[in-house]
Amino acid sequence: MASENIATPSATTALRRGLVLPLLLLVAWEIGSHSGLVNPQFLPPLEKVAGVAWQEVANGELPHALAASLKRDLLGFALGAGVGILVGLLLGLSSIADRIFTTWFNGLKQIALLAWIPLISLWFGFDEAAKIVFIALAASIPVILNTVEGVRSTSTKLREVGEVFRFSGPQLVWSLYLPAATPSVLTGLHLGLIYAWLATIGAEYFMAAGPGIGGLIISGRERFEMALVMLGIVVVGLVGFAVDRSASWIEHRLVRWRQA
C-alpha cells in the first residue's frame, strides 16, 4: 500500500515529463506544414490528419480495419503463446528434448522474423492463415525462451519438497514448475504480445490482402494520401501502447504473491 502511495505522484510526474517531447514535436509539425517550410504533401497539417480520422471512423473503414488487425493479432498470439508454453515446458523439463532441440532452436531464432515471410507465404499463401502463422511464430519465441528460463530456475529446495510428498509428474508440473515459472512466463507473454502486434503490421504490409491497419497504411501510400498514412501510424502506436500497458497491469495482478 505504502509503495503505491509513493509511486503515484512520481508516476504522474513521469507522465507529465514524458508528454513534453511529443507536444513539442506536434507543435513543430504544425508550424512546419503551415509555414511552407515542409511540403504539406509529405507532412500534412494535424487538422487534416484529424479530418481523415473522422472521415475514416464515420465511413466505418478504420473500425473495420482495426477490428480485423486486432482479431488477427489475438488469434496469432493465442496460437503462438499456447504452443510457446508447451514447447517451453518440454525444453525446460526434459533433458532429452533439451539436448535434441535447444541448439536447433537457438539457431532458428537468429533468423530475422521477416525472413520467414517468403517461406510462410509459399506454404500458406497470402491469406489469413499465413498471417496468423507468422504472428504466432513471432509471439512464440519470447514465450518459449522465458518459459524455459522460468522452469529451469525452479528452486531445488522446493523440488525436494515435491519429492518428499511423492508428487507425480503432472503434479510437479501443475503444482510446482508452472507456478514457479509464472513470473517468467508472464514476462514472455508480455513480450509475445508486443512482438505479435509488430508482426501483425508486418504481415499486413508484406501479405497485403484483406482488411487491416497495415493495409490501410499501404493504400494510403499508393494513393499518396499522407494523412491516411499518418493516421495509420498513430493508430498502430496507440494500440501497441495500450497492449503493453494492459499486459503490465495483468502481470502485476497475477503475481501478487511475489510482493515482499
Partner: peptide, 19 residues
Amino acid sequence: STSLERGIVFQEPRLFPWA
C-alpha cells in the same frame, strides 16, 4: 526413496511462495 511414511521439516520453511 522418499515416502509418505517419513515427513521432513527442513532448516528453512520451504513454503511455496504462490500458495
